[in-house]
Amino acid sequence: MKTILIFGITVITSNPLLAESTRQLESHEHGVGQLEVAIEGQKIAIDLHAPGADIVGFEYVAESSKDRKAVDTAITILGKPLDLFLISSDAKCSVMQAAAKLESDDEHDEHDEHDEHDEHDEHDEHDEHQEKSAHTEFHASYILNCMNIAAMTEIKFAYFDLFPNAKELEVQMISDVGAFTFEIEREEPTLDLIGKL
């Protein structure tokens, strides 16, 4: 009991967010990812946030070699945006930047980004919480450069073929014309862009 208590105090005091007693929990829905698309001139910035369950089928910390391999493969696939989001070749798009990573809770704490779970305070089994409560999320960000962006009339989401657990992507898009929101579902994986660029 004593060790647990000491451990608990250490965790609480060592975490700057908890020290300010901020408790925030981001929503996390399995099957649903978020895609943000910003278009300016020839450049397209895309950010994808998808639950670990959608991408690799699990959200615990990968320890077995099979799970680690699954995560590595997923990150490799996520590193190729033009294979995930199919754009007409007439648009002449090339990848300028692509980065994909798995964001676990530990990373969040280090980054000082946000705290995804408040279980710290609710129970004192801190030593177990990583296995128990961790929601993980894959985060990929890309910058594309399209020489002929006018030819981009739609985006086809091969994403759903590559990740069979993904059901839906909530898309927010911003372009010259304005901001839009779409729900792209597995059954109809196409985003119509006519009149939106």
Partner: peptide, 28 residues
Amino acid sequence: KSRLQVFGLQRFINEYPKEPLLAILPGV
């Protein structure tokens, strides 16, 4: 400054730890 940064800023505000804030895209 650049439209490409809108979502980054939105995420920064939505995840701002000191105060629960919300940033929205008016069009959406």
